[in-house]
Amino acid sequence: MTASQALANVVEWMPFILRGFGLNILMSVLAILIGTALGTFLGLGQLSRLRLVGAPSRLATQLFRNAPWLVLLFYCIFLMPYQVNIGGMSIVLPSWLRATIGFSFPVAANFSEIVRGAVNSVPHGQWEAAEALGYSRRATLFRIVLPQCISRMIPPWMNLYALLLTATPLSMIVGVEEALGRTQAAVQAQANSAMLIPMYLALLAMFFFYTWPINRLSRTLEGRFGTK
């Protein structure tokens, strides 16, 4: 088989695999949204002086941050119901959606740490100055500290997103028809072992050209915000 034949085969299967890649992107976007929202609460919870809020937030963060993503994924896939009944309506939860929720937990835990780290990186003098001007702790956090943190949180948040996207092919193991699964199916359908390397190379390129600009941008922003 010549190189041009191999290329023609790759191009032929490309739309099939790209549709799978679309699912990878969809899962990653939803998981980063859910994870960021959840992680914001967990992160602020970790900073709370109330033990009743602080302790569970820290526990959840450590638990989900130190668990393998794949194990969390298995939990969500096998423990969540296939369909839920809300007010007589039954909504089917497809496996890709359950996988997305599974990815959200480690993302939330990692974002929780990003929030905590960013808040703690603001010098103590800022809190004191605000306190001396009559700001409460909560007002200081929301009006003075967090606005300074957001720019510091964006680069690590983007790195987290890139990491999440590269983790989404794990969902193939639990039967989600994403890019990796489809590539495997395409290779089998062609019944030609010579296509193995070009097909997976195309898949790698797909992930690389999506993730690489995100990491580049994150590094540029890091430089601009003057943080490491």
């Binding site: 010098p123 003098g125 800022q126 004191e128 100055a129 605000a130 306190e131 001396a132 001007l133 009559g134 409460s136 003075i144 300074q148």
Partner: peptide
């Protein structure tokens, strides 16, 4: 606390501007 800090201001060694 607001009443106290309204009456007593403070300036720090490290300025601590926002």
């Amino acid at each position: 606390k607001v009443k106290l800090r309204h009456r007593v201001g403070m300036v720090f060694q490290q300025y601590n501007l926002f």
